[in-house]
């Protein structure tokens, strides 16, 4: 901490001397701005194309902004697939998994970090080892197991595995719980507080930052998941947004206006959330890697 603040202080020193802006800085900013704009360009292209009539999409050279704005693509998209339903399905699955898996993995992490029980270390190693297992290896048996449980084509097939098992979540939260000083908990335990009370009233509130990070990570993964829903869901009414767009693409593949409208509908919610909460999301991404 102290070295960090010292470094910050040191890096700010020259600024007080007010140096003139160097041409190198201008080139740097121009280059970065150009590259960042190029990275964002496919999204802008998607959005503007969704408002272009089809003949304008095929025009050469292409137009950037639509010359004749149309919302026909969105009308076709909403008529061709139930995106409202898909939005609800995606949200329902992603939110449930995020809430439940944060709770279960933090509970398990607490046991690994704070309770001394036989087999703790080997069991934790098992959790770590499963992080290496590719999803494709377990998806076939899971498909069969879901069939036995009667969960095929229900949200449960996606919610249950992700809610009840997250080796990464357990690992990440264990690292953070281990970093919390023991003294407070020991005092509380001497006062007769149960482990459950210590966990809910002392540990959980101190984990707000890593929980937010893990929550963002989990939500993004679930909301954008394609592989799991593709295998487990069959009927349109249960489809999540990625599945709906993929299906829509199969039916309206040549109608680029409508396809880009559908894609915009799916990409927009997260892009808007990201634009508003950039700091938290970026910190979340950085944090989830920093302890690994």
């Amino acid at each position: 901490m102290s070295t960090l603040t010292r470094n910050i202080a040191r890096s700010q020193e020259p600024r007080t001397r007010r140096r003139p802006v160097r041409p190198g800085k201008i080139i740097l900013h121009l280059a970065l701005a150009t590259c960042a704009a190029l990275m964002a360009l496919p999204f802008l292209w998607m959005m503007f194309s969704s408002f272009k009539p089809l003949d304008e999409i095929f025009r050469q050279p292409p137009t950037f902004l639509p010359e004749a704005w149309t919302t026909g693509g969105y009308e076709t998209a909403f008529a061709g697939a139930d995106f409202v339903r898909g939005f609800w399905n995606s949200t329902y699955i992603a939110v449930t998994v995020t809430v439940v898996s944060l709770l279960t993995s933090t509970m398990a992490a607490y046991a690994f970090a704070r309770i001394d029980f036989r087999g703790s270390k080997p069991l934790f190693m098992v959790f770590l080892a499963t992080m290496m297992v590719p999803a494709q290896l377990t998806i076939i048996p899971l498909y069969i197991i879901m069939g036995w449980l009667g969960w095929i084509d229900t949200p449960l097939s996606l919610i249950m595995p992700a809610s009840l098992f997250s080796a990464f979540g357990v690992f990440l939260m264990r690292q953070y719980i281990k970093g919390i000083p023991l003294e407070l908990e020991e005092a509380a335990e001497l006062d007769g507080a149960s482990r459950f009370r210590v966990f809910t009233t002392m540990i959980l509130p101190l984990l707000r930052t890593p929980l937010t990070a893990l929550g963002i990570f989990t939500f993004l993964g679930q909301w954008n998941n394609f592989f799991g829903p593709l295998i487990f869901l069959n009927s349109d009414a249960n489809f999540t947004l990625p599945l709906l767009v993929n299906q829509f693409k199969g039916q309206y593949g040549a109608d680029w206006t409508s396809l880009m409208s559908a894609t915009t509908l799916v990409a927009a919610p997260l892009l808007i959330i990201f634009a508003v909460a950039q700091r938290q999301i970026v910190d979340g991404i950085a944090l989830s890697g920093s302890k690994s």
Binding site: A36, A37, F43, L220, F226, L243, N246, A267, L271
Partner: peptide, 11 residues
Amino acid sequence: GFVAPVVTSSV
């Protein structure tokens, strides 16, 4: 600009 594609679904 750089991180927007990260939060977008691969589909």
